[in-house]
Computed example of a mutant assay.
Amino acid sequence: MFAVYAAAPNADSPLDSLTVGERPDPEVPEGWVAVKVGAASLNMHDLWTLRGVGIKPEQFPMILGCDGAGTLEDGTDVVIHSVIGDPAWRGDETLDPRRTLLTEKYQGTMADTVVVPARNAVPRPTGLSAAQAAVMGTAWLTAYRMLFTKSGLQPGQTMLVQGASGGVSTALVQLGRAAGMRVWVTGRSEEKRALAEKLGAHATFESGARLPERVDAVFESVGKATWGHSMRSVRPGGAIICCGSTSGPDANADLQRLFFLQIRVEGSTMGTRDELANLLQFVANAGIDPEIGLELPMSEATEGFRAMLEGNTAGKIVFTH
């Protein structure tokens, strides 16, 4: 079958490992289902896989793609939940120490067919296209959990999103606006700030700018480059919800401010199957049009990977069949 895959780990030149070609058709274990893929979206995780991060060398070649949407054999439209846990685990699967993501142990979604546990094929609500649904499983699910499970924000409160144009950031802007928050965003360029405003941000600011007032919660995925600003921007008793550190983890914790202002710092990783189902229904009910910055045929995946590697993102990058 056709697939986009990492042939081998390449830490220094990840695109040299990217291959568009043929892979064997997958077998379907008992309790799993085959999904005919209609669309798959690109995540930073895929570049890490190409570099060999989070995957053992003997697991290559690995079909890329955590996220996707497609169709079961009976015609049911589904969205892929990429967190695969221990079948014996009960509760929040993001806390399962044996959990894994597609592309770490199991082959991913950038192919004609992907095979997942039956519970990981979540019905797709009417009103969401395959391309729209394909962006939900990682970036949008991460944003949903940060906002609705972790932050404790109420409609009418003010949230700050650090970084204006990535997949999680654009999802946070659109979800926050739809949920009735006052949404503020920082961005490095006028173009990125304009995108945030187009998606519903009430105000945008240059990176590191002093804000008119402190916010109720900051949503942080950048790390070292923005952490100090996040700590200065949140009100006493407010929260910083962190899902990543794309600029590096070497952040100044600013512990005096942390304890004196009683700031709550909470980590957030991906989301559960139930959160994905709720997210899909919320997006459909609210009529949200997820921001897709670049849509390409899967055969032209290299162009999308290059855009992400060079930081030329404006929403999600989606590959379609």
Rank of each mutant, 00 (worst) to 15 (best):
R188C: 12
R188I: 07
R188L: 08
E190V: 13
E191C: 05
E191A: 12
A194I: 07
L195T: 07
A196L: 04
A196Q: 07
E197Y: 05
E197G: 15
K198Y: 05
L199M: 08
G200P: 04
A201N: 09
T204I: 10
F205S: 05
F205D: 00
S207L: 08
S207A: 14
A209P: 12
R210P: 08
R210W: 04
L211P: 02
P212R: 11
E213S: 09
V215F: 02
D216A: 07
A217Y: 05
S221F: 07
V222E: 05
G223S: 00
G223N: 01
K224L: 06
K224M: 06
K224Q: 06
T226F: 04
T226N: 12
T226V: 05
W227N: 00
W227P: 01
H229V: 00
H229W: 11
R232K: 15
S233R: 12
S233Q: 09
V234C: 10
V234S: 10
P236M: 09
A239W: 14
I240Q: 12
I241F: 01
I241N: 00
C242F: 04
C243A: 12
C243R: 06
G244K: 10
G244Y: 08
G244S: 08
S245N: 09
S245M: 13
S247R: 07
G248Y: 09
P249K: 03
D250P: 03
A251Y: 03
A251P: 06
A251E: 07
N252Y: 11
N252E: 15
N252V: 15
A253M: 15
A253S: 11
D254F: 02
D254W: 04
L258D: 03
F259Q: 03
F259W: 15
F260C: 05
